[in-house]
Computed example of a mutant assay.
Amino acid sequence: MKSIFRIFFRTLRIVLTPFMLLWEKATTPKGIVRLPEAQQQIDQQCKNLALYQFKTCPFCIKVRREMNRLSLDVALLDAQKQPQHREALLQGGGRAKVPCLKITDDKGNSQWMYESSDIIHYLQKRFA
């Protein structure tokens, strides 16, 4: 019975994946246009951020859309298909849950932020 559920959901994911990615592409808003100096400063700040995500996770899509709207160049790390990123997420954040924003300060200390709504609120507060 357990294998039947697993096969069902795996098939469902395979069928829905193209539609989810197409929906993301079609509904992603235009990014904020900033002066080149301001955008360069924001890009520099984004080097201390990394988003651990799955490509087709609806909550990850929500965060990526907001990052695009804010014109943020944050590193996207696929914790589903790249085992080294999944392991880093487990070691650093303690859970293999996505989306997860890794925020590194100037001293090299890292903070791991889970929950898409918290991540979006943080990005809006810091970069909007």
Rank of each mutant, 00 (worst) to 15 (best):
L16D: 02
L21V: 11
K25M: 06
K81N: 15
D106H: 12
P36A: 11
L76I: 14
R86Q: 13
V98A: 14
D78T: 05
L49T: 05
Y114E: 08
Y52T: 00
E115S: 01
A96L: 08
A38F: 02
C100P: 03
D118G: 02
E24Q: 15
M113T: 08
P18D: 13
C100M: 10
G92A: 09
Q84I: 00
K125L: 12
S71A: 14
K97P: 03
Q91H: 07
T28K: 09
K25S: 07
N109L: 12
E37P: 00
W112F: 15
K30L: 14
L22T: 14
K81P: 01
Q53N: 10
L35N: 14
L101D: 02
Q82V: 12
P29G: 03
K62M: 15
D73W: 01
V63I: 09
D73H: 13
F54Q: 07
I103T: 01
N68R: 15
A79T: 01
N48F: 11
L76F: 09
K97A: 07
I42S: 01
I32V: 15
T104L: 03
L77F: 06
I32D: 04
D43S: 11
L123I: 04
I61K: 04
P18C: 10
G94E: 03
N68W: 02
L123C: 04
R65W: 06
W112H: 04
D43W: 04
D73I: 05
L89T: 04
L22G: 07
S116V: 02
N48K: 12
S110A: 15
A96W: 05
E87P: 05
L76W: 10
C60A: 11
D78V: 02
P18R: 01
D43T: 05
L89F: 04
K107N: 13
P18Y: 08
